[in-house]
Design a protein around this nucleic acid. Structure first.
Lengths: 182, 182
DNA sequence: AAAAACATGTAAGCTGTTACATGATTGG
DNA sequence: CCAATCATGTAACAGCTTACATGTTTTT
């Protein structure tokens, strides 16, 4: 059984916050900083169906005041299991290179966990891996022949500085969690 | 006729630098900072085929010393037209929000153009749009209730700081191009 | 009464992933 | 001669986008 996609995990996380319908989820994706995930019905509804088929969520028909049907989804026990394991996954080098968005999503949902050990480990690993990648980009810049057009040099620098910003962020975030422990 | 995807434009740009085979392109994507684009044959070869079918590139069989066949692709006139138009496209707000990677790719290839006016306009618009988006994120942070978990606040801050880094980069890059003009 | 928002979905098409397949050439 | 690398592709599948489809309830 395959793992959900990023969108699947985003949905699973939101359902751990509160039971929601497909339409509710669309609104969250449209109006909040999570908006980097698709809010189109052609993405949300099939994603909900997959999560349901894999037994990670279940839907109940909710008839509030009206007689219009509305599927309210909530996570199953298996879904919570999978969600917890996802939150605590080790941070690898490919994650920071290829799946930075998903890492930040994971971080945002770690407030679901009781204590902060997972988060502290996450941030330490995140800072370490991103530093390694930044160093690699730096050495690529140094290896650039001086004939390289200015555009190429600058494009690489934008990447380097973006990674630096994430590293600094991670270090500061880690301090915030260490303060909180005491 | 639809426009190429990001990968298509990346290929088109590389072919403006030099004629290359599918295999050559794969190596570039594997080994350089452009590596955020897929190097898998299942992506490259179909992308080449599409560019060919749309008349933007053409392949010639190149038999160097050996008798092994090797398709060397180069842009057609129509391909160069499309490429130039892509390089000079105005920078919109959705571009910085949803397609930052493609914007940086466009910037990197702008060295193909004779003079720097397009690049200066690009960087000015880029800085302006990214500032607007950063301000929106900031106001989202301020609108956060104080009950918001630390994780959520910090995740949003990571986004804000990443955008700030890009804005600072754009401002510095613009200065570099203005110096060069004189 | 009409418009907007609620609410859920499907269908076609495109792109990319993973895995497979094939054979030639070169370096040790 | 064997392994690595050169070189080009295909097939099955997953997921997303865009566009369409349908009907209900609330607001103006």
């Amino acid at each position: 059984m395959k793992n959900p996609t990023s969108l699947g995990f985003a949905i699973l996380g939101l359902l751990h916050d509160a039971p929601r319908s497909g339409y509710d989820l669309r609104k969250v994706f449209e109006s909040t900083p999570m908006g980097h995930y698709s809010s189109s019905p052609g993405a949300i509804y099939p994603a909900l169906k997959r999560l349901d088929e894999r037994g990670l969520i279940e839907g109940r028909i909710d008839r509030g005041t009206s007689r219009r049907s509305r599927q309210l989804y909530r996570p199953t026990e298996a879904g919570t299991e999978v969600f917890r394991r996802w939150l605590a996954r080790p941070v690898g080098s490919e994650d920071v290179i290829w799946r930075l968005d998903e890492l930040l999503l994971r971080f945002a949902f770690q407030s679901f966990l009781e204590d902060d050990r997972v988060t502290r480990a996450f941030l330490a690993a995140f800072a370490r891996e991103i530093d390694l990648y930044g160093a690699e980009l730096e050495s690529q810049r140094e290896a650039m022949p001086s004939t390289t057009p200015l555009h190429g040099q600058l494009a690489l620098e934008s990447g380097i500085e973006s990674y630096r910003a994430y590293r600094d962020w991670a270090v500061r975030a880690l301090r915030r969690f260490e303060d909180r422990r005491s």
